[in-house]
Design a protein around this nucleic acid. Structure first.
Length: 252
DNA sequence: GCGACAG
DNA sequence: ATCTTGTCGC
């Protein structure tokens, strides 16, 4: 529902995240990931949900598959869904994952040959309070390689959005430049990436599943025509267009 | 009480 | 997430 979750549910969610966390694979598992030019990579996916203004429960779940390296849309699926979980920072996956899995299932059933070899997810992967964000959740439950790309910095385990961070951003000179997001333990959980030359605001890339951080960053850069990687951008554009057409704004 | 808060 | 047009610049 839209009401805040009980302490009990939060504890259950944390427990589920800690359980599934152990199944995340943080290394490259596919041959194309080891190739300098990603030779062998043909299809990249993007997933996103768009909402109607002022509506907490109805949304459009979107899955797109693009060709690589052309980045042409090969497949598109828009589906209205009714959300059951509220948005709580750190628990985004419990709100969105079920519908993204359903979309992948529809693809598997109707166009199995278009199944993406990697999925870009709008949100974090390992760069998360319990190292198990949306991209990890979708990755583990689907078994597909996933990359998390967040548009805003989540302040995790000692990574702050302070003056230091701002100066590191200012030091990113060109598309592809990045700096590590190192948490208190010393582990690098993600990277801030200047996704293309003209963008001064970085995106935050982290491992979802079955891919290394270095490969995730290199792949993300190679999928950026604009600031947001094309698979996610197309999913966003098309789900919002779907809502615009099917649920036109009502005048007061 | 105050700040933080992926989408 | 969403509220929102024009405008400056390459």
């Amino acid at each position: 529902m839209s009401s805040p979750p009980t302490e009990e549910l939060i504890k259950q969610w944390e427990s589920e995240q800690e359980q599934l966390r152990q199944q995340v694979v943080e290394e490259d598992t596919e041959d194309w990931q080891k190739s300098p030019g990603f030779s062998g990579l043909k299809r990249v996916g993007g997933a996103d949900l768009s909402f109607i203004k002022g509506d907490e429960v109805n949304a459009c779940a979107q899955l797109v598959v693009l060709s690589y390296p052309d980045l042409t849309v090969l497949y598109e699926d828009s589906q209205m869904v009714t959300l059951t979980a509220p948005y709580v920072s750190g628990f985004l996956a419990f709100r969105e994952t079920p519908f993204l899995l359903e979309a992948l299932q529809r693809l598997k059933t109707t166009q199995p040959t278009l199944m993406p070899q990697v999925v870009f997810v709008d949100g974090n992967g390992l760069f998360h309070y319990r190292e198990f964000g949306l991209a990890c959740h979708l990755g583990v439950l689907s078994g597909l390689p996933c990359v998390g790309v967040a548009k805003n910095l989540l302040q995790v385990q000692g990574v702050f959005k302070d003056q230091q961070h701002q100066s590191q951003i200012a030091a990113l000179q060109k598309g592809g430049d990045s700096f590590p997001l190192t948490v208190a333990s010393g582990k690098v959980l993600g990277k801030a990436l200047r996704s293309y030359d003209k963008s001064s605001k970085p995106v935050y890339v982290s491992v979802g599943h079955k891919i290394s951080l270095e490969t995730a960053v290199r792949l993300t850069h190679s999928c950026c025509r604009y600031r947001v990687p094309e698979p996610i951008r197309q999913a966003d554009v098309r789900s919002r267009e779907y809502l615009r057409i099917h649920f036109p704004a009502t005048d007061a």
